[in-house]
């Protein structure tokens, strides 16, 4: 029952860390280069998931359930964040008939 599964022997933590870094970088690229607010939002979700993967990896390799509980909380907070964020995007769309973030320059930032 408590035998170590094959994956923890043949695949080092390093591979999972590299995968998480690649996914996180793709998320950053999406946030920086896209102008559609919804795509930017999806890129943020991608970054959250990269971090989740990292948490689960270290939790499983170290046999510590705290990491997985933390991922559970991250998922719950992401759900709340998406509900509020999409409501804000809908409000922006009502005002300017677009979700292009480059049009939101009223504050002259």
């Amino acid at each position: 029952m408590n035998q170590i599964p094959e994956i923890f022997r043949v695949i080092p933590v390093n591979n999972f860390v590299i995968l998480a870094v690649v996914l996180f970088s793709i998320g950053i690229l999406g946030v920086l280069t896209r102008r559609n607010a919804i795509i930017i939002f999806m890129s943020v979700e991608l970054m959250l998931n990269a971090v989740n993967l990292l948490f689960v990896t270290f939790s499983s390799y170290k046999s510590d359930p705290t990491g997985q509980v933390f991922v559970f909380f991250i998922m719950a907070i992401a759900a709340a964040e998406v509900a509020v964020g999409l409501a804000i995007i809908v409000m922006i769309y009502r005002r300017i008939r677009s979700t292009d973030v480059s049009l939101l320059n009223n504050l002259k930032g």
Binding site: M1, N2, I4, P5, P12, V13, S63, D64
Partner: peptide
């Protein structure tokens, strides 16, 4: 970095 795999000493497969 040095290759890191799970250590046998206190591994618990029922964590998740």
């Amino acid at each position: 970095a040095p290759i890191a795999v799970a250590d046998d000493a206190h591994f618990d497969s029922q964590i998740g």
